[in-house]
């Protein structure tokens, strides 16, 4: 937990934050509306005797009272997909519409890409890319199990991604759920902080800046880009968004989020960020009894 000490000055009720980080997280699933309505999925869970509780902010997210959420008929049929509650946030902030072209830059293992497809009623094109070939098989497996026919899966470095392979040259929306130091997953992976170092923050934030920049470039004017991580480090969050504001044609836009959250930072250590970064969201584990997350919404301006 020691690396988290650096966030004492920015987290309200820091002790509650630390306590929450030490508690294991329960099992959450997202209802995959490509294959079943929320009604049908929950009726199947009830028939199987699996207890569940809905969450206030999203009718498609359920907390399950079972230790083996993968061994249910509802999972076998692809009606539900194990997905941490906060990781269902960025796709809802992106708000893709049926028929659009959407890019998920860092898509494996596919929970968010298939969520995007579901939000689009599985109509349109979701380009699900990941640079890691080993993780592509998990992405493909999940896409097929969840019945997502709108996914095109590619294996490339998102930082210099080429659209030449397709017959369109820009996306309507892009999701950058970036590789990160994963501090916010500590409740799921107790060793998440084991390799933590400031040097790693520098290294990974370079990748994050490259991917977000390319996502803004590949999205049409007026289109939307959502940037998210599962970490608390401002170097990987506000600083990355600030970098995109400085170099790419985009601006921060506000969004509604019914989960309790804190505003993004406008300063960290000796750095100052644009005032609009207050419109980004930091979700801390003690606020909603979830993992930790950061989300920013950008509009492409040229």
């Amino acid at each position: 937990m020691e690396p988290l000490e650096r966030y004492r000055p920015i987290v309200d009720d820091f002790e509650a934050f630390l306590d929450a980080c030490e508690r294991p997280l329960g099992n959450a699933v997202r209802v995959n509306t490509i294959k079943a309505s929320v009604d049908r999925a929950t009726t199947v869970l009830e028939e199987e005797g699996v207890g569940y509780e809905g969450v206030d902010w999203n009718p498609r997210v359920l907390r399950l009272e079972t230790d083996s959420p993968g061994s249910t008929w509802s999972s076998f049929h692809g009606f539900t997909h194990g997905q941490e509650e906060v990781s269902a946030v960025p796709a809802t902030v992106l708000e893709p519409e049926p028929g659009e072209r959407v890019w998920d830059c860092c898509a494996a293992p596919g929970g968010k890409a298939t969520q995007l497809a579901a939000l689009m009623d599985d109509r349109g094109t979701v380009v699900a890319n990941d640079s890691n070939l080993g993780r592509i098989s998990a992405l493909r497996f999940n896409a097929e199990r969840l019945g997502a026919t709108s996914l095109a899966v590619t294996n490339d470095d998102a930082r210099n991604y080429s659209l030449e392979r397709f017959d369109f040259d820009e996306f309507d929306r892009a999701l950058v759920d970036a590789p990160c130091s994963c501090e916010g997953t500590i409740r799921k992976n107790p060793d998440a902080l084991d390799g933590w170092s400031e040097g790693y923050l520098d290294e990974v934030s370079g990748i994050q800046k490259g991917v977000l920049g390319r996502a803004v470039q590949a999205t049409r004017e007026g289109g939307t880009v959502v940037y998210s991580t599962c970490t608390f480090a401002p170097e990987e969050n506000e600083a990355v968004v600030q970098h995109a504001l400085d170099r790419e044609d985009c601006r921060i836009v506000d969004f509604d989020l019914e989960l309790e959250h804190s505003p993004g930072l406008t300063e960290w250590n000796d750095e100052e960020y644009d005032d609009h970064l207050e419109q980004t969201a930091r979700i801390y584990p003690h606020q909603n009894d979830t993992g930790g997350f950061f989300v920013a919404k950008l509009e492409v301006t040229a």
Binding site: G124, I136, R140, T149, L151, R165
Partner: peptide, 16 residues
């Protein structure tokens, strides 16, 4: 596949 793509295309997967 339900999306847009030219033919032929060399990618990892297209729909299911």
């Amino acid at each position: 596949y339900g999306g847009d793509a030219p033919s032929p295309i060399t990618i990892e997967a297209i729909g299911m």
